[in-house]
Design a protein around this nucleic acid. Structure first.
Length: 281
DNA sequence: CTCCAGGGGCGTA
DNA sequence: TACGCCCATGGA
């Protein structure tokens, strides 16, 4: 068990921020996350004191980085222009959200599934994939499932993928498996590319367009300047920024600001569980 | 460039 | 019961 005092760290918000789908709350102040073939319990003991159910080694090598603890989010928030009152309000409302360092392969599959989809269904699809094709992880009495590797999905047919609630996205997953097995999509290799080259490679993958590519850049490769434009950001652009997408999109921390805008724009959904005020563009 | 199908679950009329 | 919508994209 590792104990840490952390500021700008709100797991409830991170769990609802739409960047990860295998992090959930299990009780008051108790969260569980599955990542990198591990299960981690995180508990909020008091105020800013958190307990992580892992050894020092794992904390230093995996989780410290996973939760992006070295990054100074107070400084990122302080960089917001004084004139951008909407983003300042969004940032204050979203304070505690961090951009997680997640596995590139998992992000490729996750955000292929996310396209034109709703978050509860995205979660279900991912859990079905993991239960059927991921390796087992023991955690005391409980048994969990890791995210399937490309090799785990190599023999899976289009029909079997369809049974994971993927809909028309099944064919994209099948192509992604081939891209990984053939070496076109190699997280380790791609992480050494510059932003432009990385995005170009991602866009060449079947089913990956600008929005999904930016999500993979931001959540899988921690390119904090990537700015995914989804329906919520478009909505903010048309309703708040006079038809333009938010001005902060060119910032070094555009991706962080995108998370703030996304979380803030969705606050009514998060509070009521319903989509309200929805409109196209 | 525009238009539209792709699954499926949930909300509203 | 029908229809709109959802962290979009490829193809016509």
């Amino acid at each position: 068990m590792i104990y840490k005092k952390l500021t700008y760290f709100d797991l409830d918000k991170i769990a609802q921020s739409g960047q990860c789908f295998r992090l959930w709350q299990e009780g008051a102040g108790h969260f569980v996350v599955i990542a990198y073939n591990r299960v981690l319990h995180i508990e909020n003991l008091e105020n800013d004191i958190w307990a992580f159910s892992c050894a020092e080694d794992d904390f230093l090598q995996i989780w410290q980085n996973y939760f992006d603890l070295p990054t100074d989010y107070a400084q990122i928030e302080s960089r917001i222009s004084l004139e951008d009152t909407f983003l300042r309000e969004a940032a204050a409302y979203s304070r505690g959200i961090r951009i997680l360092h997640q596995d590139p392969w998992e992000m490729l599959i996750t955000f292929l599934i996310s396209q034109n989809n709703n978050i509860p269904r995205i979660r279900r699809s991912i859990e079905l994939l993991c239960e059927r094709y991921g390796g087992k992880i023991r955690d005391g009495e409980q048994e969990y499932f890791a995210f399937p590797r490309p090799e785990d999905l190599e023999q899976v047919t289009l029909d079997q993928l369809g049974m994971c609630n993927l809909g028309y996205r099944a064919k994209y997953i099948q192509h992604a498996v081939q891209s990984a097995l053939s070496g076109i999509f190699d997280g380790e290799k791609l992480s050494r590319l510059g932003d432009k080259e990385l995005k170009g490679t991602l866009l060449s993958l079947y089913g990956v367009g600008p929005k999904v590519a930016d999500c993979i850049m931001l959540y899988g490769f921690h390119r904090l300047n990537a700015f995914p434009v989804d329906v919520w950001i478009k909505r903010v652009g048309s309703q708040v920024y006079n038809g333009n997408i938010p001005a902060q999109k060119d910032s070094d921390f555009a991706g962080v600001y995108q998370q703030y805008l996304f979380y803030f724009a969705r606050k009514d959904v998060l509070n009521t569980g319903k989509y309200i005020g929805a409109d196209r563009n």
